[in-house]
Write a protein that binds this DNA or RNA. Sequence first.
DNA 1: CGCGCCATTGACAGGTGTCAAGAAACGTGG
DNA 2: CCACGTTTCTTGACACCTGTCAATGGCGCG
Lengths: 261, 261
Amino acid sequence: MASYFHIPSTDTSQAKGALGAVGPPASLEVLATVRRYERGQAIYGQDDSAEFWYRVVSGLLRRFSIRPSGRRQIVDFLQAGDFFGFAGGDELHGFCVEAVGIGTVVASYPRGRAEALADSDPRVGRFIRQMTLSAINRLQGQIRILGRTRAPEKVGSFLLDMTTRFAGVDGARLLLPMSRYDIADYLSLSVETVSRAMTDLQDRGAIMLAGTRQVTIVLHDVLDDDSGDEPLASRDTAARTLLLGGGPCTAARSSPSGRGV
Amino acid sequence: MASYFHIPSTDTSQAKGALGAVGPPASLEVLATVRRYERGQAIYGQDDSAEFWYRVVSGLLRRFSIRPSGRRQIVDFLQAGDFFGFAGGDELHGFCVEAVGIGTVVASYPRGRAEALADSDPRVGRFIRQMTLSAINRLQGQIRILGRTRAPEKVGSFLLDMTTRFAGVDGARLLLPMSRYDIADYLSLSVETVSRAMTDLQDRGAIMLAGTRQVTIVLHDVLDDDSGDEPLASRDTAARTLLLGGGPCTAARSSPSGRGV
DNA sequence: CGCGCCATTGACAGGTGTCAAGAAACGTGG
DNA sequence: CCACGTTTCTTGACACCTGTCAATGGCGCG
């Protein structure tokens, strides 16, 4: 974290998914402006115009929106290498992006020039498509998690998902970069329920907690398990799918890898 | 629905969001192969290889995955003009796609040739980026909905979201193209709870039901309301955001338009 | 008419949000 | 170094909501 304003190459000290490993093309990178953000500082706001694309150089960001009720819903956690800010056509973002910790560095790209570059340089276009696809994968992963019905399952699959993105040297140990409040707003749970789910998973021997942020995964299958022991939920739906659906959609999958659209 | 196998242009008889209105470039369209699917028939399965991109010509599809417990989770509803099937880099989809109703027509594009075309033809590349962005918008919309805590709110925001996508001639009337079971698996609720939420919204005067599929929106703000009357949820979180967050993220938004990344 | 499928409603147990209190971790200043 | 305030995290009690199980009615179709 020494040089803040130079060498905007991605910090790959953290383990990353297979996709985001490759950096942006040099022709795109010359457009970059790099800036450092403090804890809680906003990169952009909910009603700001989408004039830039962004890339996380190092640190962690949260993308969220505030509901009329005051509830904060976190839609995405962004780490080194992740792109964000490419809006859906009209001018507004619709979301806020904030730095979670201190020393978060973000590169920004002028939207118009970046899009023009994507037209002229196939590598840039392909890269942008890759970035949007990894964004889609992250969103689908969160939908998978939000789709679980009970809190320990949500927290469990969240931890597994984080392991694939924020894992330390050995795969089982995980250093959570965000607070319980962030996790709660990401999973649409109350902080108390997140806390209870953590201790529940620990009591069941699925994880081990060292302090509040360090988690060691012990039993993967318990975290991934969405069958509340015996009762396999939604028998009706499953049965209907088996009868009507046909095809290979009936087979259950074991490993959760959010791919494809 | 007369000509099944020719003129694969998008059926725009249904109202669409602003983005998907423009059709695919002609250079991409020459690669298309069009096919018709019956009710419940699979376009591809969970572990099929992602050799094609697809576009919905007419009808409705559901994209989902089956959990080990047997629960079906619907990740996306796809209608005329929507693209799908561009996987996240590796070879598998990870999801199933099925036709919801009868007479669903889908165009498929060989993946390799379509990607090559995206490199050589900027219009195709831009179009693909547009399609991925609208996919992102759909996913973010679902995350917003799944983030709500109580069933009537989920169903209410779901109905509003569907109105923007499946609205009839006048904006308030909505003809649901999917069953209660589909809605339940989309919102991660039980069918009974969806049904109860519908009647609850009707009792409160927010909607009017004519039969089971036709819904008339009466009070938008009730459907969009996520504050359970008085108690504004997560005071802690909101207060913390107000104090720490800073920036324009504190302002609440009224209209739910899922834009931006 | 009988038979699936879909939709609705009721009863009940279990899980989660809320409110409240207390413990632990962290930063700051003395 | 310790005291102190703030923030974060955990745990408990209780009301409410949702999933489950069960029963019923509507609807299309052979």
